[in-house]
Write a protein that binds this DNA or RNA. Structure first.
Lengths: 196, 196, 196, 196
DNA sequence: TATGAATGAGTCTTCATTCAT
DNA sequence: CATGAATGAAGACTCATTCAT
């Protein structure tokens, strides 16, 4: 598994395309191989099995995804700005890669429990970023004290995830990046009147 | 499809059990038939095909699920109370049926796009309940004006859904009903200080 | 197996219709029962099994078919006239019952060897009629001597059968009865010049 | 479908054997694969589906069959000799391959309408050969004028086909090639006295 | 006699994976 | 490293037949 070989990335990129275009269950190894321009057998020189393609795909793509979010957020001053940047960058990146959006929001969820747990492992790094921003917010006295960290994380991630999934299922017909501000506001202030 | 025949429900209940215990991909029709105590062929007297079992399962179980929530919420006075009741009843019902929780949060998501769209059709009724509560909240001046209804709905549903999914993936080791109050608070007030 | 019960004929008539309309392989017992207006199980009070419906169908319908041919031919004087009448009546009867034509020429041939041998048993009576006409023709010195009886029978039956089959496969678009004269002539005189 | 691969022919030959020995309806794909010495899945590298095996079988075998008849007949001078050669070669070839005789005369007729139409397409080439011989016979003034070409073709093909089928159903217990002369005579002269 | 709900044996086809070249 | 032909396990679905009512 030499991850710096061009063929490794070639195959992963082919997999994203094939899965986005055909759906998870119609994405046979042979189809991915064909799109990547290699023989079926070659896949198995770079990946242990089919599931390993998917795990690697997620690691590779989500790795970059999270890295970008880390970069963008650390440069911001306040927790509030950081949270906005996180939401904005999250939406922006998936908006920029339609294939990836389909794959992460819809197709990859059709995998079995085992694969999903490996995916969650990758996501942990993202959740930590969220946790830290929340921590900072509390320290800055921007956020309430006594917040259940896990629930907060679930609200933030759940809201963004549901928002992106709905956008994908509506065939990405509107601009999701535009909604970052409002989502941010909802998370910060909730539904109630500011004054309350 | 004779939905009032006892065998119809027998098979659906067997399907919930089998899928929860074995996972979606290891749930062969023959396994469901065996658990239901009928012959394989009998399944096809009550369901068009395997996918139809899943769609019917979701319709049947979610129908009851949503009905319960509708009942519980309408009796409450304020939008705030209604929202709390919705969250509480949502958690309570899934908490009471561990198998169903696994099936709806994890296994049913492994279905293809087509099935998921049928599932979304059923969910629409639930989303309407949420929408109406939000509407009432705005009218009562409890909630802010100018809220993007779709985003609000996605925050509410996404937060609950993510919360339940995390609970299921943690093997339901803690009491999720206890969290209804905090989730409700997060949705109403967001992260910011009340005083802001 | 009380063959004079009306239901017996009811089922056979339904079978002819169903097979003609749906083809042999799409003619399930349940479909025949429905068309006959009886329950599936009732079929088995009148027939041993599905194959028995087909054998009975052939016996019943071919019995009448052959009987008619026997009647028509015996009244004729010469072997030449008898042969013409046989061909004409053969064509006429199938022409008058399109469903039966489809069933005997196309659909019933899709049955297995065993069933086909039972069918041949029924046909024997017909072949005997042909044989006797040939015999008479030889005695009348109308036909050549030294004819191989079996081959002659095969020529006569084969020609008629192929002619009807072609007509059925061309969706019965022309009048086959009109061809009786020419077929008769071909069988009597063959291809050669009369004068030879 | 790589028709020049040896495995293609291997499977077709196995299919002929299996169908001749077990009958059409007891000829499972797995049985054919086993006889051909390949895995079940290998069948599907060379054939689209089970029906495609049968169509290909008929095309392959009948192609050779007709080609041989074309070769043998063209070298003959008169239409009369050509017709004899056609009948003789027809009988000879099926006589030489007992399995093929069973398959073409009995088993392949158990296929559905769709398949039979594909088979008829292959047969068209054969019927054209017959038509041309008849045409030549008329030009040579050997045959009568005013003959209905289609009926003549049906007499010739029907007689041969019925003759072969009877021989196969009698378990090929006599020598059919010996009958070519008499069949030829019947077709040329019919039943009537030469002198008429 | 008549019903029709229930049975369960039987089979084609797919596709991830291997391995000889 | 790369190939791609070959493998073979696995499963949804049909439908003739039965039998309790």
């Amino acid at each position: 598994m030499k991850k710096n070989k061009p063929k490794f990335k070639q195959i992963i990129d082919a997999a994203v395309e094939v899965i986005a275009e055909n759906g998870y269950h119609s994405s046979q190894v042979s189809k991915i191989a064909k799109k990547a321009g290699v023989a079926d057998g070659t896949i198995y020189l770079y990946f242990k099995n089919k599931e390993d393609i998917l795990v690697s795909l997620f690691q590779e793509k989500m790795g970059q995804f999270i890295e970008k979010i880390e970069q963008e957020t650390t440069s911001k001053q306040s927790a509030e700005q950081k949270l906005f940047t996180l939401i904005h960058t999250h939406f922006e990146q998936l908006s920029a890669d339609h294939h990836l959006a389909i794959v992460t929001q819809l197709e990859l969820r059709q995998s079995n429990k085992e694969l999903r747990q490996k995916i969650n492992l990758v996501l942990k790094r993202y959740l930590k970023v969220i946790d830290q921003i929340v921590e900072e917010g509390v320290e800055e006295k921007l956020f309430r004290t006594g917040l259940d960290r896990r629930l907060v994380r679930q609200m933030i991630f759940g809201t963004m995830d549901e928002t992106v999934t709905n956008w994908v299922m509506k065939d990405q017909r509107y601009n999701i990046v535009d909604q970052a501000k409002e989502v941010h506001s909802l998370i910060i202030h909730g539904l109630a009147h500011n004054g309350q």
